[in-house]
């Protein structure tokens, strides 16, 4: 709502203007950042990096300087402990370090899979001997009752994805919505507001809608023009509706708030709640249920 108030003011202030400014922010020691995942049926993986000074630009050569390479990373799933191996990865043509996955170092076959109901313990020891840890549970999946597409009034072919959810009658369920258009998106993408919990809807059956997510700072034509945030007639949409644990929910609730606040004078700048001990970021668990919508 605060963003909304901000919009109101801006709308009224025809004389407002903005300019680029340079700020001299204090330098602080970089901290280790965890971007870790356990997903049903997939080997767990972790991307490790370091935080950097706020205005340092990132050029092609510089990306790897933020990557946290050479760390000792293990995951315990209640039965066994496996070490995650660091892979040489190429992302969009750029080689990237700091990507660790639960694969065999020789065969490259998975050594562990995400299983619903298990609790995973992550332990990291970096090259400079910093220790980080986290624990997260892979929740049982909760499927949506139904999903559909509806054109927005006044808009010819564009609209939102809709779903009906019946929340189980036990408080504490947390969710994240993501979706992908076949042939148009490489990944499942989440719009702002994708993370929610059942605090106010416990045990109820209700309808909700979702905008279309995009890659951050995307410059694709359908992300910057009138199609931005909307699905279109003819899209085949795969919905990945995930049950997540509380740590994942809290991280994304705060991160989405921070992203949408971005300097708003109506918000107090605040840090994102992390479930990592000794570092930043999140060790996330995703338990998905899939649906397909043919938009027509």
């Amino acid at each position: 709502m605060k963003q909304f108030l901000y919009l109101i003011i801006i709308a009224f202030v025809f004389a407002s203007c903005e300019e680029n400014i340079s700020l001299d922010l204090p330098r602080e020691d970089p901290r280790v950042v965890v971007d870790g995942y356990v997903e049903t049926g997939l080997p767990p993986y972790v991307i490790l990096s370091r935080s950097s000074s706020y205005f340092d630009p990132i050029n092609p050569g510089a990306l790897n300087s933020f990557a946290e390479s050479g760390a000792f990373v293990t995951i315990y799933d209640g039965v066994k402990t496996v070490q995650l191996i660091e892979l040489d990865t190429v992302v969009n043509g750029v080689s990237l370090k700091g990507f660790y996955a639960a694969l065999d170092s020789v065969t490259k076959l998975p050594t562990m899979f995400g299983e619903e109901g298990r609790t995973y313990q992550l332990t990291i020891i970096t090259k400079d001997n910093q220790q980080l840890s986290s624990t997260a549970k892979l929740q049982p999946h909760i499927a949506l009752d139904s999903t559909w597409f509806k054109v927005q009034e006044n808009l010819d072919s564009l609209g939102l994805a809709w779903a009906n959810l019946t929340d189980p009658d036990s408080i504490g369920n947390c969710y994240r919505w993501m979706a992908k258009r076949i042939t148009k998106d490489d990944l499942f993408l989440a719009p702002l507001g994708s993370a929610f919990e059942d605090k106010f809807i416990n045990g109820q059956s209700f309808v909700f809608n979702a905008f279309r997510g995009q890659i951050p700072n995307s410059t694709k034509p359908d992300d910057i023009k009138e199609e931005a945030g909307l699905f279109k007639k003819g899209d085949t949409i795969i919905v990945k509706f995930c049950a997540v644990d509380r740590g994942t929910f809290e991280f994304w609730r705060d991160a989405e708030t921070q992203i949408s606040n971005n300097g708003s004078p109506f918000a107090v700048p605040s840090n994102i709640k992390s479930n990592i001990t000794g570092g930043l970021g999140v060790f996330a668990t995703y338990s998905p249920a899939y649906d397909t919508i043919i938009a027509q």
Partner: peptide, 13 residues
């Protein structure tokens, strides 16, 4: 103001 920035993938990457 923020003193540092860091990265997290929006969804499983």
């Amino acid at each position: 103001l923020p003193s540092q920035k860091y990265f997290a993938s929006t969804t499983p990457p």
